[in-house]
Design a protein around this nucleic acid. Structure first.
Length: 318
DNA sequence: GCGTCCAGGTCTACC
DNA sequence: GGTAGACCTGGACGC
């Protein structure tokens, strides 16, 4: 348990339209930094690992009008330098995507039957960017070849058995294990305690590569997209689907589950072989939504209940 | 209670 | 360069 004290506070501005609620507390239930973060009365208490230390964050939307802004209280275990503070601000801006201009996406949506619905429901929502690389890699590895509730179980067991806990502002929040911890853990222990199966070897290999020396997430995100994908693919079992999931400028990345949904939306029919259909659906989406296909993906998957009502397809059954 | 089936990808061997 | 088959095992499902 790491006890953190209030260290400093600042505000960050966001390009309008911006919805803090929808961006950090997604309708589909996705967390931003850790599954254990707390969302209460429109305030987010969460934790990230920054420079190998846990940091507590308390975030809330200070202004909602044409100049939206977020208040950020930082809880830390020692005094931070100005340079450290600036890097943290940059990280938050990037991973909360506060400077993103959604104007073109919303213009395309005006003439698109599907996007028109989701953009109206979720105006101002940002696609979250991962604040930390190793947790995003844990997600990518545990999603592979498993139903989502099993993936969740594996992630929760990893956090419970190997993660760290930050305590601040009256809250205690569990955070993902570090790459160093997993690199030191025996594969058989990972299999037994986190139910990882064959993924134990994969996750351990990734953690070892990170510990031996790998570019930071900020570094990777500043690379041209193709170069960033190539670098991430050097990691064991990180392929096209996972790299799209990891990069903040994510593309349209279908898996078996989402292929079933997009087959209904884009072709009007249920697919018998979702895995085989993925390349075709991917092409259809990229032709239809061009560079905004990744945004279309996230908006649609966060609005399935309402889309089902409006389109007549039961998109929530998968 | 027990057996069967398959999952929110990726890699490898083989053609 | 294209593709079938293997990969752990928890949990859903049928009986």
């Amino acid at each position: 348990m790491t006890d953190l004290k209030l260290s400093y506070q600042f505000e960050l501005s966001a390009k309008p339209p911006y919805s803090f609620d929808l961006s950090v507390h997604k309708p589909a239930g996705w967390w931003w930094a850790t599954p254990d973060e707390i969302w209460l009365d429109k305030v987010l208490w969460t934790t990230i690992r920054f420079d190998d230390h846990l940091i507590g964050l308390k975030l809330w939307e200070k202004r909602k009008d044409e100049s939206p802004s977020i208040h950020c209280s930082v809880y830390s275990d020692f005094e931070r330098s100005g340079e450290h503070k600036n890097r943290l601000k940059d990280l938050l801006k990037r991973s909360l995507r506060l400077d993103e201009n959604l104007g073109e996406f919303y213009r395309i949506a005006e003439n698109d039957d599907i996007l028109k619905i989701v953009v109206n429901d979720l105006r101002g929502m940002r696609i979250a960017g991962w604040p930390d690389l190793f947790p995003a890699l844990i997600l990518a590895v545990t999603l592979q070849m498993a139903p989502f509730n099993r993936s969740q179980s594996m992630m929760n067991l990893l956090i419970t058995n190997y993660g760290d806990m930050a305590s601040f502002n009256g809250k205690s929040i569990k955070y993902w294990p570090s790459a160093e911890t997993i690199a030191k853990t025996d594969i058989e222990d990972l299999k037994r305690t986190a139910k990882l199966g064959y993924r134990a070897q994969n996750l351990k290999s990734i953690s070892e590569t990170l510990v031996q020396g790998f570019p930071s997430f900020d570094n990777i995100n500043s690379m041209p997209r193709d170069e960033a994908k190539k670098k991430l693919k050097e990691l064991r079992v990180i392929g096209d689907y996972s790299t799209n999931l990891l990069l903040s400028d994510r593309g349209f990345s279908l898996d078996v589950w989402s292929a079933k949904i997009f087959s209904l939306l884009l072709e009007g029919k249920e697919t018998e072989n979702p895995r085989e259909e993925i390349p075709k659906l991917q092409r259809l989406a990229e032709e239809r939504w061009k560079g905004w296909a990744g945004h279309a993906f996230v908006y649609i998957l966060n609005d399935l209940a309402n889309l089902s009502r409006k389109t007549g397809f039961d998109l929530t059954k998968y």
